[in-house]
């Protein structure tokens, strides 16, 4: 129990600090950064539930991030329901989709699992591109998201959206943290380390895998909702393969074995992106060299590297 209270306290502290920062540092770039960070960190951490904790390497997790942006933006544009209702409905849509997709995917193993999830994502991408009447096709959903007011707070205002994103991020991370610390989380790690033994010990492997698949999809869609609010719409790029790549790079660079690894990785990637694109148009060259230095120098994510240096053993991890 103590751990939960400690985590919640840290979360509240983080929100308080974030809420204060804009009053100290003027300029809105920091707020934009935090909003994007919140979206991508939720997405990357949700992917790490699969990769780091269960040993399921998905290449197509962007399906749920993108579906989150589209379902939320469409619900806001096409129906009259309020933002919180659209939020909940989006989570439901993603959960249902994840049950169907997961039921097919978790039958497959290792690299085949990775590629079938990617195929699922690209299939959804093809559908969104083709269904022009509903989604606007490759142009994306245009015209912005209306009625961004929750309980009198207008999320169209940047500072409000910033606070909203920070709160959603902290709550999302707290819940995921709780999930991996329960006995369910222990089952995940047992499956990762030795599926046959886990099964022998009475864990119904497929049920656990499907559950974590659905849970991670739901959290990915929360990241999608934040992104949808940030860009005020939804675009096919948000469900295309590179978005899955971004999440994978974030968790690999931040550390698959540490709960906050994906969040740290997201921050590294976004910072690199923002700083490097300002300096040079040879963004790929610069980023590529930095990634190589990272991958070959540390050979593991940053947080995992630090944990090991401090003599600890990362809690999660894949080998």
């Amino acid at each position: 129990m103590g751990r939960i209270f400690r985590d919640i306290a840290i979360g509240i502290l983080a929100i308080a600090v974030l809420a204060a920062v804009p009053h100290l540092i003027p300029g809105k770039a920091f707020q934009d950064f935090v909003i994007r960070c919140s979206s991508m960190a939720l997405f990357a951490t949700s992917l790490n539930l699969l990769v780091g904790y269960t040993g399921l390497s998905s290449f197509g997790h962007g399906l749920f991030f993108g579906l989150g942006t589209y379902s939320f933006a469409l619900l806001m544009q096409r129906t009259g329901i309020s933002l919180p209702m659209a939020f909940i409905a989006t989570l439901l849509i993603n959960a249902v989709t994840a049950v169907a997709v997961g039921a097919i995917c978790i039958r497959l193993r290792l690299i085949y699992f990775a590629f079938v999830t990617l195929a699922m994502q690209m299939l959804m991408h093809s559908i969104i591109i083709s269904w022009v009447g509903l989604t606007g096709g490759d142009q994306g959903l245009q015209g912005g998201i209306p009625r961004r007011v929750v309980a009198g707070i207008d999320l169209g205002n940047q500072y409000n959206l910033y606070i909203f994103a920070a709160v959603v991020l902290v709550i999302g991370l707290l819940i995921m943290r709780h999930i991996v610390n329960t006995s369910f989380g222990t089952s995940l790690r047992m499956i990762r380390d030795n599926e046959a033994r886990a099964s022998f010990l009475g864990i119904v492997v497929w049920r656990v895998k499907l559950t974590v698949f659905v849970l991670s999809a739901v959290f990915a869609s929360v990241g999608g909702i934040v992104m949808s609010l940030f860009v005020s719409g939804a675009y096919p790029e948000l469900i295309n393969w590179p978005i899955s790549g971004d999440a994978i790079f974030a968790i690999v660079m931040g550390g698959v074995g540490s709960f906050l690894g994906p969040t740290v990785g997201t921050m590294i990637l976004l910072l690199l992106n923002d700083v490097v694109t300002r300096q040079t148009e040879y963004y790929g060259l610069a980023l590529g060299i930095i990634i190589l230095a990272f991958a070959l120098g540390l050979r593991r994510g940053l947080l995992d590297f630090i944990t090991e240096r401090l003599g600890g053993r990362p809690a999660g991890g894949i080998s």
Binding site: I111, V252, M253, A295, I318
Partner: peptide
């Protein structure tokens, strides 16, 4: 891990 290979 395959993801490290992917990164490189």
């Amino acid at each position: 891990n395959v993801l490290m290979q992917l990164l490189i």
